[in-house]
């Protein structure tokens, strides 16, 4: 133990990790520049703030997804959680409940559904991909049960300031994002909860042996994501003032893509909130830019897929090829 070891420069590890956020930032600047040059509308304040307002739900959900992925899990049911929360919000309006009650109702529903996810994963020991796939189907069934194929539309704009309003000259969504990411950052870096997430994602068995209440932490992180999905539902309803049948179908995969782009490792133990946020902005910018330069929005997914492949390949090559299963 007294020998001085020369360890392979792990400052490269940290450099790589930081590098991802830097690379993303550089990519945003680069591609943003391209769009700015190709379309006069891109760099306008109006366009940028609209894009920002459109990114809030994905951004908020991606924050929660980052924490889940860091713990080595995944959640493909967030779209369903968002949808069911949105129905309750919509129904709340229809029942004439006061706005604060509606908000609380929506958040409570989302958190409850998230807890269900957590329980299935932690207590029933079902692997996260299977568990959340299953719960997604169940949640969607609930959605159909309540809506029955019809939209809830014509909702009042009580919540709209969340998305379209301004506070002290800055768009409210900015505060929302800052608030959510700020809290998540504190949880991740400055609270034992974050340590436990990293530990479980790194080596669940070690975490258990070290005395961490693994099951409880898992349920909590899923509940948190559920809470944030409900926040996304509030934003969604605020923005569109309706609840339609196909809401939230792709948001789970987009959030996962953003988090992975941002530097998280699907195996767990590694992840970055800033990276996820940059990933969200990157995705939304591409969606926005493509439309502005006249490229069909149908190419979005191709671009996202291609980017993911590049990023994942770079990651894998840095780690020296296939990780041999233990």
């Amino acid at each position: 133990m007294a020998l001085t070891e020369t360890v392979t420069p792990v400052w490269t590890q940290r450099l790589l990790h930081a590098k991802r956020e830097v690379v993303l930032l550089a990519a945003i600047v680069l591609i943003g520049g391209f769009f700015a040059v190709s379309s006069p509308y891109f760099l306008t304040l109006d366009n940028l703030t609209t894009t920002l307002r459109n990114s809030v739900d994905l951004a908020v959900i991606s924050a929660g997804m980052t924490l889940v992925i860091i713990s080595g899990a995944i959640d493909v049911s967030v779209g369903g959680v968002l949808a069911v929360s949105a129905i309750f919000i919509g129904r709340g309006f229809q029942w004439g409940l006061p706005a604060p009650v509606i908000v609380l109702l929506g958040l409570a529903v989302g958190t409850a559904l998230g807890t269900v996810n957590g329980a299935v994963v932690a207590k029933a020991k079902v692997p996260p991909i299977i568990a959340t796939l299953g719960t997604m189907y169940v949640f969607l069934a609930v959605l159909f049960l309540v809506i029955g194929g019809e939209w809830i539309s014509g909702l009042p704009d009580t919540l709209s300031p969340l998305v379209s309003g301004n506070l002290l000259g800055l768009p409210v969504p900015l505060y929302l994002i800052a608030g959510v990411y700020g809290v998540c950052y504190l949880l991740l870096r400055h609270h034992a909860f974050g340590r436990h997430l990293y530990a479980i994602g790194s080596n669940e068995n070690s975490a258990r042996l070290a005395g961490i209440a693994v099951d409880r932490v898992k349920i909590q992180v899923y509940a948190l994501l559920g809470f944030l999905a409900a926040t996304g539902a509030l934003i969604y309803v605020a923005r569109l003032r309706n609840v339609e049948v196909n809401i939230g179908t792709t948001i789970a995969l987009e959030a996962i893509a953003a988090v992975i782009l941002g530097g998280a490792n699907i195996r767990g133990g590694v992840g970055s909130l800033l990276g996820a946020l940059l990933g969200v902005l990157f995705i939304k910018m591409i969606q926005n830019g493509l439309v502005l330069i006249g490229v069909s929005s149908l190419w979005e997914t191709v671009v996202i897929g291609g980017l993911l492949i590049v990023v994942l390949t770079a990651d894998a090559l840095k780690h020296g090829g296939p990780q041999r299963a233990q």
């Binding site: 893509a257 191709v302 994942l312």
Partner: peptide, 26 residues
Amino acid sequence: LINIVGIPSLMATLATYFAFGGLALA
């Protein structure tokens, strides 16, 4: 992608899910 480059299967096929589906649409 999965066996030679070494990307975890869930991630690799998530990326191709986007890429293939997007290509079909576009």
